[in-house]
């Protein structure tokens, strides 16, 4: 999973004008993010109140300043590289098909399901929230077996709960359901 070997831009439709240019150069967004991260880091470091805490010649400020500066430099270098036609290569994998454009619906559904599970894990407990996460994720990924999917999710989640909580000694919240059982 660490071999970037294929170019992504192959799937981009040939459009004209400004939008096409932006699509071609969407990697500049990475530069903007790196720049923002660098500024954030430098602001945080420079507004630090270090006089009381300083011990030794190098305080808590030095490394953040170095890393922040590095981020600014890399953002600039990356921008230059992108404008000169350099492109980061999207990663390939066993189940990755780069010939089609990214499926944002699936990604946002998965993100939503995961966030939902994070919210539900404390009130509902792990077995239920975990089962919902598994079912929801399988649904988002295109599984539509209304009979098998929930059953599968429930089995995986309850088994995992039992193995971790009771066998391996890793506590997970049981929630109201486990209180009843």
């Amino acid at each position: 999973m660490t071999t970037p070997t294929t170019d992504t831009d192959t799937g981009a439709a040939p459009a004209t004008g400004r939008r096409a240019w932006i699509r071609e150069h969407s990697e500049l967004g990475v530069c903007v993010l790196l720049l923002a991260l660098g500024i954030l880091l430098l602001t945080d470091a420079l507004t630090m109140d270090v006089d009381i805490a300083q011990r030794g010649p190098v305080g808590p400020r030095t490394v953040p300043v170095v890393v922040g500066t590095g981020l600014l430099v890399v953002a600039a270098l990356l921008a230059v590289d992108v404008l000169r036609g350099g492109r980061g290569r999207a990663e390939t994998g066993e189940d990755v098909d780069l010939s089609e454009p990214a499926d944002w619906r699936t990604v946002s559904l998965l993100t939503g399901v995961f966030l939902g599970a994070a919210v539900l894990i404390e009130p509902l407990g792990f077995p239920i929230a975990g089962a919902l996460l598994f079912w929801g994720a399988a649904f988002a990924l295109g599984s539509r077996r209304a009979d098998r999917d929930p059953l599968m999710a429930a089995v995986v989640s309850f088994l995992t709960y039992a193995v971790f909580n009771n066998l391996l000694g890793v506590p997970l919240p049981g929630g109201p359901l486990m209180g009843v059982l």
Binding site: L110, L141, T160, L172
Partner: peptide
């Protein structure tokens, strides 16, 4: 089936992260 595989990865990732500190 790939939906189960990647749903499982998300699921076990959640288990791992939650088990670190028990915080949502």
């Amino acid at each position: 089936p790939r939906p189960y595989l990647y749903a499982g990865i998300m699921f076990f990732a959640a288990v791992g992260a939650y088990a670190v500190g028990g915080e949502a």
